[in-house]
Design a protein around this nucleic acid. Structure first.
Lengths: 139, 139
DNA sequence: AGCATTATGCTAATAATTTAGCACCACCAA
DNA sequence: TTGGTGGTGCTAAATTATTAGCATAATGCT
């Protein structure tokens, strides 16, 4: 198994429009065709968006449920799985696989945005990582 | 300006193969055509890879320098810019823009991989973020 | 020198993607 | 009922992406 096998979103194989649509679906969780159209850049017509969605459904990357007369589309892969997959891919591509480098970059980017509650949570996560490191060293 | 304008890598507009190649270039920093070919999944022939690279050069997304008889290709956008851009895009798509959620996910993913040195660095980054939060609150 | 290997410039054929449009349906208001 | 609005199923044409191959050049080895 290679790291590519961790790509649960299958993003590496998506065409330009497919990828735009998947990003929109992951961001929102689920969307109607019309909302997908509103969410993607330089959107084509409604029927073009539907044809693209139909293709993704055919490929079993996207599924839909009916809500009255309209279809609500959502990614087949679970949200949490997609997150992890995207994180790993980004680590590999831009941070040489280093979690610490990525976290540092994240924190450096958004200093003014963290609430005290969020900082507490982060502190807990660091403490937890530190404990895991300590026990790993003792083994 | 929208968040899409922060996409310095221009990834949203890349075709399937273009994106694979850009990922390989960002990961490695720079690559020969042959190495690009080795780095992308289900690679076509050498001349196909070169044609794709030529297209990216034409679009000014990639540039190259000559090293003896061979060309070494590299992304035009700076590494650091690409990192930040990718991070922001990922935050937006998978974490509702929340840095804290992303950091938590990162730390939860790789508990056993952090060295004590890395943990110290993370602690400093958190402390720094905490200080920024405190001063923001006092203003 | 000759040959093999490795490289680029360029092209066009092939495949895939993207797109719009027709036909039809359901619902609602006048 | 009619017309408008909003929806899907399906298709094929237009556009773009992908691919391999020819011609040429450079390098290294025998």
């Amino acid at each position: 198994m290679t790291l590519d096998d961790l790509d649960k979103t299958g993003a590496a194989q998506l065409s330009r429009r497919e990828r735009q649509i998947m990003d929109a679906l992951f961001e929102a969780g689920e969307l109607s065709a019309q909302d997908v159209r509103a969410a993607i850049p330089d959107a084509p017509g409604y029927s073009a968006v539907r044809a693209l969605l139909a293709k993704l459904v055919e490929k079993k990357i996207v599924d839909f449920r009916e809500e009255g007369p309209r279809y609500i589309y959502f990614p087949v892969v679970a949200q949490e799985e997609a997150r992890i997959s995207a994180l790993q891919k980004m680590l590999k591509t831009f941070f040489g696989g280093s979690t610490a480098a990525a976290v540092n970059a994240l924190l450096g980017m958004n200093k003014e945005k963290l609430s005290s509650e969020e900082i507490d949570k982060l502190q807990q996560a660091i403490d937890s990582a530190a404990k895991a490191e300590t026990s790993a060293r003792q083994q």
